[in-house]
Design a protein around this nucleic acid. Structure first.
Lengths: 239, 239
DNA sequence: TGTACATCAGTGAACGCGCGTTCACTGATGTAC
DNA sequence: TGTACATCAGTGAACGCGCGTTCACTGATGTAC
């Protein structure tokens, strides 16, 4: 029957989910390169070979965790953006950036898995590319909306001619209606935000920056300015 | 005698160096988390326990590699900067940024070791902090020189008050004579440059940017503009 | 210069561990008639 | 509703491997007189 068939499948889906949950928990303790199928099985109370019913190899488990990671940070950023007034461009930008950083600080090993150095011996399959764009989509929408509202200054040097096709492709997906120069600076700002978070998380700001919350906000707004988003010099008053 | 004593010590130094060379070569193949003392010993034709005469543990070998890595990228950036006319601020900035990226592309695993996610189970000791500042020192000198020459626009929002002491400390070491706002934006730009290189190396620009050389140059100059360095809109003519 | 001793480098075996993956198997859960 | 069969989940043992680190040891290289 269909009902009973889905019953078995439901159990299967539940266990698959439980395995990734346990794996994610262990990831948070030992980091991706040290993550082991056997340890996951042990914690689940199964024999290690049983996990192979759910994931054909360790790499597939890692792939699942990467996809989950991209989705998790994607959701965090989407929610941060959604909580802002649509026309408050600097507010949305800052909220989205804070969303990335907040998620990263809460899940450092997951962050390292998706934005850090590649796990040795593991090669990410195509499947991981699409969920990776989720964060970019939110940042892109903010810039697009700002452009549509005429709230972007397209100043600064023009990007190289070879960037044209890339910009055109990005306009079709995450940055509709955004001129080449702003596309280039948006990409730069995106990489910069992640660079800032990585610096903080990977220890490069040790003994350098004390109040990292405040510094990050300031840096994020500087980068909004780099893109050309019109940012108030002082925080706007709230009634 | 002193001469013979240094003879023995010379052999020791040579072998120590050879071990790190082999380790660095293997690092380039398997990545830091998979680097193993035994494999290094095997390639050297020694028994694994012999390596312990030179490095008391695997962690100490990793530490040596990290320090070497910081020094190597430091040298690369210093040389890139030194090849430019002292008063050509944008040229020096671009050269230094290219130096980081060029070294990173040539030594991706070493780059990942120093700027990527931390190696699980390894905790970097204090020794690694000082050589880490070598790159920052070059970038800092460029900004300092530009400030001294009056070639920096200190525009944009002020950094948070809590950043004051950090800026003061940085002024004493790598950014003499640089006002708080420019210090903050220099740090942001520094993290951004490394973020761009990481994005490229760790696969985030896959299917996004085609001509990465040209894009990087453009991004680096955008970030020079973020700091406030006065950049010519068009490349200056050369006679 | 020659000898007695101390220092050091490198050996080989071992300890104890964990890993990914395969495979033949036992039961339980589902399906078809 | 009941039975015969097929599918699937989980077991337990095994394969073959590599790892970091310790330790008692043999020789060679240096030092002091």
């Amino acid at each position: 029957m269909n009902a009973s068939r889905t019953a078995r499948e439901r159990v299967r889906a539940e266990l698959t989910r439980e395995i990734t949950d346990v794996a994610r928990r262990q990831l948070g303790e030992v980091g991706a390169p040290a993550l082991s199928l056997r340890a996951v099985a042990r914690e689940m109370g199964m024999v290690s070979s049983a996990v192979y019913r759910y994931f054909p190899s360790r790499d597939d488990l890692l792939t699942a965790l990467i996809i989950d990671g991209y989705n998790a940070v994607g959701v965090a950023v989407e929610q941060a953006d959604a909580a802002c007034a649509r026309d408050d461009v600097p507010g949305r930008w800052l909220a989205a950036c804070r969303g990335i950083r907040g998620w990263a600080l809460a899940h450092p090993h997951e962050y390292a898995l998706v934005y850090g150095s590649p796990v040795p011996g593991y090669r990410a399959p195509e499947q991981t590319i699409e969920p990776a764009s989720r964060v970019a989509a939110v940042l892109g929408a903010i810039v697009s909306d700002a452009c549509a509202a005429g709230a972007v200054d397209d100043v600064g040097a023009s990007p190289p001619a070879s960037f044209g096709p890339d910009a055109a492709r990005l306009r079709e997906t995450v940055l509709p209606g955004v001129p080449d120069g702003v596309v280039a600076r948006s990409l730069t700002a995106w990489a910069s935000i992640v660079g800032l978070v990585s610096f903080e998380l990977f220890g490069q700001f040790e003994n350098v920056i004390t109040d990292r919350d405040a510094f990050f906000d300031h840096a994020a707004l500087s980068l909004a300015g780099l893109i050309g988003l019109q940012v108030d010099p002082a925080p706007r008053a709230r009634i």
